[in-house]
Design a protein around this nucleic acid. Structure first.
Length: 473
DNA sequence: TGAAATGTTGGGGCG
DNA sequence: ACGCCCCAACATTTC
């Protein structure tokens, strides 16, 4: 065992519990130096977006507080990672560098650079399992290929060895004789100026302790009715674990085992956790799909960008209440209910024929849970060009989706207040409401709320024609 | 993790 | 009483 301190390079594993690299480092008994390196340039076009940066700042603050309670602290540096890590190693005489694997393409590229730069055996390097239930690449079909159909993937997962039980947080973290220099968190400039994060702050509480509380509350209150509740955007029926999982404030293993322990009705929720797993494994195998469609025939799909329509979509001014409610919930709180994500995504790519990459970029910047693997899978699914995708002809009718999943209009009312007084009968199709109903609800279409920017029927036909043209080529 | 178009069936109104 | 038509309601097919 080497006597020098261990650097624990934290990336997207901002937690103390079930943190294999940190636990292993703590058990050595030598000093432990947790370090975070901010290197957005290493992520290329997928540097964290605005909402994600806000979250990261809070999350690092929380992590720092938890470490301080244990007599430790967080060293914060700017990238590139290889330089920051080697500098700190030299300053502290570190003997080892530990980290948990990160699976997205940019993180892997960064890790490769670090490994190349490290001079072994002067600095011992050890890698530990990241935030997936099964190692990416370990789940394959009988001919050794990655799965591109979810159910087949899931069946094999279920037959594989279950993910290991989560580790307890380390009991103590030995401090080094002298801490390395660290820059102040605020110097990273992650928080927005001017401060537009009020809406996010009122809904979200980043950090490991809050992640655990939220999971507990979800399992106790919502798991039993999850199958139906998860499709009701007006209800508190989903777990909202996505941002915590993205930053590793809780591990997928912790979520998995907590849900399992909760009893037999966990299956539908575990299935959703498995979709996350599927997305991450897919991006591991097909890293180019963050930009390019998985199904190559979609390379010549006649997408057509339209700045005015894009603006209406991003601002929640399309004239379709469910779409607008979702886009405004996103803009105001950094998050959107999954059922509504499917509807707004379908609307952008099918009704407006906009390239799915445009929608992915908007989500990337505005979601607190922006995650390259999940975002890529979701958008390619919606556009019909991805793995296990909705066939292109499967086009959501935003009115029917609203009537089905927000039957009394409560979700629309809370995010599109100008429609709040309209009766449930018309709330998802105000353009069909009789003049008297509109007057009574104080709505003037075209002034207080827009007319639909496209006609559903016509847009549907246009999308199917575009699809037909692609298939001919 | 759709929706629309088209087909089929069966009850009831009506001459 | 009977056949005819209408049209929900449900099922199947198509996009």
């Amino acid at each position: 065992m080497r006597p020098g301190p261990v650097l624990v390079w934290l990336q997207r594993d901002l937690r103390l519990a079930d943190n294999p690299a940190l636990s292993e480092a703590a058990e050595r008994g030598t000093p432990v130096i947790p370090i975070f390196v901010w290197s957005p340039e290493g992520n290329g076009r997928w540097a964290p977006g605005s909402a994600s940066r806000w979250w990261l700042h809070q999350s690092l603050e929380q992590l720092c507080a938890s470490l301080r309670k244990r007599g430790s602290t967080l060293t914060v540096r700017r990238g590139p990672a290889r330089r920051a890590l080697l500098d700190v190693a030299a300053e502290t005489g570190a003997a080892s560098l530990y980290w948990n694997e990160a699976d997205d393409p940019a993180a892997r590229a960064q890790v490769a650079e670090v490994e190349k730069a490290v001079c072994r055996p002067v600095l011992e390097v050890r890698k530990f399992p990241g935030n997936l239930l099964w190692a990416p690449g370990s789940i394959r079909n009988s001919s050794g290929r990655p799965f591109t159909v979810f159910t087949a993937f899931w069946n094999v997962c279920r037959k594989s060895a279950p993910p290991p039980e989560p580790l307890n947080p380390p009991r103590s973290l030995r401090a080094p004789a002298r801490w390395p220099k660290s820059i102040a968190l605020s110097d990273l400039g992650l928080e927005p100026t001017p401060d537009w994060a009020g809406g996010i702050r009122s809904v979200w509480h980043p950090g490991e302790p809050r992640a655990r509380n939220r999971l507990r509350a979800f399992l106790d209150r919502s798991l039993a009715g999850y199958s139906e509740g998860r499709d009701r955007p007006a209800q508190d029926g989903v777990s909202r674990m996505s941002p915590y999982l993205h930053f590793g404030e809780i591990s997928a293993r912790q979520v998995w085992h907590a849900a399992h322990r909760h009893g037999p009705n966990a299956e539908p929720f575990l299935r959703q956790i498995a979709w996350r797993e599927f997305a991450h494994h897919l991006l591991f195998h097909f890293p180019e799909t963050a930009q390019e469609p998985l199904r190559p025939e979609f390379r010549n799909f006649p997408w057509c960008f339209n700045a005015k329509a894009m603006r209406a979509w991003t601002r929640g001014q399309t004239g379709y209440p469910l779409v607008d409610a979702g886009m405004r919930q996103l803009w105001q709180t950094g998050w959107m209910h999954n059922r509504v994500r499917m509807v707004v995504a379908s609307f952008l790519v099918k009704h407006l024929l906009m390239p799915w990459q445009e929608g992915a970029a908007w989500f990337w910047d505005t979601l607190v849970d922006a995650d390259l693997a999940n975002n890529t899978l979701g958008w390619q699914w919606a556009a019909g060009c991805g793995a296990d995708a909705a066939p292109y002809f499967r086009i959501f009718n935003p009115t029917l989706q609203g009537e089905k999943f927000d039957p009394d209009g409560a979700y629309v009312r809370s995010w599109v207040p100008e429609l709040a007084k309209l009766s449930a009968r018309w709330i998802h199709k105000p353009w069909q409401a009789p003049a008297s109903a509109l007057a009574e609800a104080r709505i003037t279409l075209g002034r207080t709320y827009p007319f639909p920017i496209v006609d559903h029927e016509a847009a549907r036909k246009r999308a199917l024609e575009a699809w037909g043209r692609m298939r001919q080529r």
